[in-house]
Amino acid sequence: MERGIRVLVAKAGLDGHDRGAKVVARALRDAGMEVIYTGVRQTPEMIAEAAVQEDVDAVGLSVLSGAHMHVFPEVLRQLTARGGGDILLTGGGTIGDEDMAELQALGVGRLFGPGASTREIVDYIRAETARRRAQSETR
């Protein structure tokens, strides 16, 4: 039987805006995924550690404080350092197009800005998880 999709929804640093993280966490759960929500005020190390421990397929990081150019690369680095480099790092928040492009060039997955629908996010995580699983099987 195929394993279900596991996602860690996380808030990093001091940012307390958790509406988006909660709405997305609930939508992923409604879509049948297993969701772990970290709560606010986690360090990138804590997030990467939890992601590896919980053996998740994806980390969804929510950043509304303007610190995304610091937080996303740092979580990516910490994931790789723990052998979790194959985990999809996606997320969203108040992030302009230019910054999104720069983060994607670093290896971050698709990022979702204000107005994105949870449907899009669900579809993206499903498709990307399937793609990554297929890739690791053919390796």
Partner: peptide
């Protein structure tokens, strides 16, 4: 800024990026 709101100085490690 967020560090100030959270009672942290600008040179606190938790303030990085904020």
């Amino acid at each position: 800024d967020l560090p100030t709101l959270m009672g942290r100085d600008s040179d606190d490690p938790w303030s990085a990026g904020e």
